[in-house]
Amino acid sequence: MKVLIPIKRVIDANVKVRVRGDGSGVETQNVKMAMNPFCEIAVEEAVRLKEAGLAEELIVISCGVTQCQETLRTGLAMGADRGILVETDAELEPLAVAKLLKAVVDKESPDLIILGKQSVDGDNNQTGQMLAALLGWPQGTFISKIEIKDSGSAITREVDGGLEMLEIKLPAVVTVDLRLNEPRYASLPNIMKAKKKPIETISPDALGVDVAPRVEILEVTEPPSRQAGIKVESVGELVDKLRNEAKVI
């Protein structure tokens, strides 16, 4: 089984995100970047499938700037076999990423695509679903468990009411949730081995994909700072304020 793991380079989850002075977006200059945490979970799951003898080849792929190579190296150090960088300086929207991924899937023909349910920067939660739609493949989103069987794949997804068990046929797209696994840290020998693993670079043009944005961002602002609350003396006062001031009951 061949597994494709799309991963994204985002601002490190430990960094406090700041809005750019001109309100055009968030500041990414001189900010520490890292692999999106959900993508780490996706890579970890793929590596476990390989360690269990269920997958033969793991390919990590990232779409974006040159420095995404570092993110791919992280995935290679965790255990992926090779990397693909679709290199572009353009701001990529989920639909553009899904189209780029589809073009690569057409070339590589993986049996399973594992990706994070969303990235912690845009929080769009769209790429996996769009990719499944473009490919016409079954999808399992927000999964907390995956089993590979002869007939396909049995997955458990986290839904509002609890857990939902599904069987889907391969090839398929799955997006992973937080509780699927705990990603490993790369060992020093594996970090060094990753340097020798191949990363192929392709351009969106070569894949015949138009990545021009469909959405215009007008302004990005900091959320308003929270106002201090008030203390009420009695239940009666609370009910009064909720009814007459907040007008919520």
Partner: peptide
């Protein structure tokens, strides 16, 4: 420097 950064990231995770 990228190798050193990868090493630092991994040690931090450990």
């Amino acid at each position: 420097d990228a190798d050193l950064q990868a090493i630092r990231d991994s040690v931090r995770a450990l």
